[in-house]
């Protein structure tokens, strides 16, 4: 009898584990277009799912049959290395078939419209279309005309949700919740879909976000009145803005877009806004340095910082695969559950 009591006591002392709260968070999304309407619960679900995917990636043979029989197409109208290959790898680890389509080598080059192209891809059997387009809003148009899941891999100046999710994941891996953490996003926010998506997710989770750039590179819509972006602090002085930061996110200076007289010159810009060692010293000790890549070393970030101890750029890339696996899993589960209830 005593041994039984001991058993019970030990069982009661067992560490807490996940309770049967399965599906307590409803996931209703077939598409991932932006994070502007994401709830805290949805962001948490993506993060938690990405943790599971990280475990899969850590295995000797990182491959599970979760999306066996699912066809994923990547449709990129703009160049990309890390995003496209990261999605491709994510799909393959989950057992899906992944086909890459570069717009330059497809019928798009013959003048096919976006709507016709995505309808064709759906007819071919695409369950998921991962899309990058130079026009803001293009994935929204695609999502309206097809049944396939559309994942926005970057549209114009508008949004890049999976990048913001992997940034969030990288921050959480370092210090847990981002609530109350000071995040400084520095650089060409005007042309940055990465910055815009990050503003939504970070403010939703209670981070203190400061956008730092020359006045010409600050996007409009940050005023409470306009409300097209969440309200955040704006500072044009990096030395002041970086003070006490937990995270410093440098944005790529989009040299190809710099013909509009936004900055007097690259040397001037880097003198004022480059994330370098002396500026980073003003942030909190051990502050994370992030960059969505590709980096212009010597322009928005110094070589030393880009490859220094505080740089988490490579970790961002690695987390990108886990986060994109999570997104692929979630959007396809929605489709499957719908299909299942229809056949019942």
């Amino acid at each position: 009898m005593t041994s039984v009591r001991a058993t019970e006591a030990r069982a009661a002392e067992a560490p807490p584990f996940a309770t049967g709260s399965s599906d307590s968070v409803a996931w209703q999304r077939r598409h991932l277009l932006d994070l502007d309407d994401f709830t805290v619960d949805e962001l948490e679900l993506v993060m938690q799912t990405a943790d599971t995917m990280k475990e899969v990636l850590s295995r000797e043979v990182p491959r599970v049959p979760a999306l066996r029989g699912t066809t994923i197409l990547t449709l990129f109208y703009e160049n990309s290395t890390r995003t496209r290959s990261s999605f491709e790898l994510a799909g393959k680890v989950l057992g899906a078939d992944v086909i890459n389509i570069a717009a330059s080598s497809s019928s798009v080059a013959k003048g096919e419209s976006l709507v016709d192209t995505v309808k064709t891809l759906q007819a071919v059997g695409a369950d998921v279309i991962i899309m990058r387009h130079s026009r803001s809003g293009a994935p929204y148009l695609a999502a309206r005309v097809v049944e396939s899941s559309i994942i926005n891999a970057g549209d114009g100046l508008h949004a890049h949700p999976t990048q913001a999710l992997l940034d969030l994941h990288t921050m959480r891996a370092s210090f847990g919740s981002v609530r109350g953490r000071k995040v400084v996003i520095v650089g060409d926010a005007l042309h940055s879909r990465v910055a815009r998506s990050n503003l939504w997710s970070l403010t939703a989770l209670g981070a203190e976000v400061t956008l730092c750039a020359p006045p010409t590179l600050i996007p409009r819509g940050l005023d409470a009145g306009e409300g097209t972006l969440p309200p955040v602090h704006v500072d044009t002085d990096l030395d002041r803005a970086i003070e006490g930061a937990d995270v410093v996110m440098a944005l790529r200076m989009q040299l190809e877009r710099m013909n509009g007289g936004f900055v007097p010159g690259m040397r001037e810009y880097s003198r004022m806004y480059q994330v370098n060692a002396s500026r980073l010293a003003r942030a909190k000790p051990g502050a994370l340095v992030l960059h969505p890549g590709p980096m212009n070393e010597g322009v928005e970030i110094s070589h030393e910082v880009a490859h220094g101890l505080q740089s988490h750029v490579e970790e961002q890339v690695a987390n990108g695969v886990a986060v994109r696996m999570a997104v692929l899993w979630l959007v396809t589960q929605h489709g499957r559950r719908r299909a299942a209830t229809e056949t019942e």
Binding site: L45, V64, A66, L94, R337, A340
Partner: peptide
């Protein structure tokens, strides 16, 4: 150890299943 089989279910048993998956350990 703990095992989460969410990524291994076949379509039938996935019917109505949770999207919530957790790391195995």
């Amino acid at each position: 150890g703990t095992l989460d089989i969410g990524l291994y279910r076949d379509d039938l048993s996935r019917r109505g299943a949770a999207v919530n998956i957790q790391p195995s350990d």
